[in-house]
Simulated assay, not measured.
Amino acid sequence: MPRDSRFIALLGIGAAATAALCAGAWLQAGPAAAAWVAACGIVLVALFAVSTALRYRRIAQLSERLDRALSGERNVSFRGMGEGELAILASQLDKTVTRLVVANEELEAEKHTLADALADISHQLRTPLTSLGIELELMRKAAATPEDSQRVRDCGRMLEQLQWLVSSLLKLARLDAGVVRLERRRVDVAALAKAAQDPLAVAADLAGVTFQARVEPGCSFMGDAAWTREALTNVLKNCVEHTPAGGTVRITAREDTVACRICVEDTGPGIAEKDLPHVFDRFYHGAGNATRRDEDVCNPSGVGIGLSLSRALLVAQGAQITASNVSPTGGARFDLVFPKVTV
Rank of each mutant, 00 (worst) to 15 (best):
S5V: 06
I8W: 08
L11F: 02
A19C: 10
A20T: 08
V45Y: 03
L54C: 12
I59R: 14
L62E: 09
L66E: 12
S71K: 03
V76Q: 03
L86M: 08
Q92K: 13
L107G: 05
L118R: 11
I134K: 11
E135L: 09
K141N: 05
A144E: 09
S149C: 04
L162Y: 06
L162A: 14
W164H: 11
W164F: 10
L165V: 13
S168Q: 08
V180M: 06
E183G: 14
D188L: 01
D188W: 00
A195V: 04
G208Q: 09
F211E: 07
Q212K: 15
Q212D: 14
R214M: 02
V215Q: 04
A225N: 00
A225K: 01
A231C: 06
D256C: 04
A259G: 07
C260F: 05
C263L: 12
E265D: 14
G270W: 01
I271A: 09
I271P: 03
E273C: 07
E273L: 13
H278E: 11
H278Q: 13
D281L: 04
A287D: 09
T291M: 04
D296R: 09
P300A: 13
G302N: 11
L314E: 05
A323Q: 02
S324D: 15
G330T: 06
P339T: 13
K340C: 12
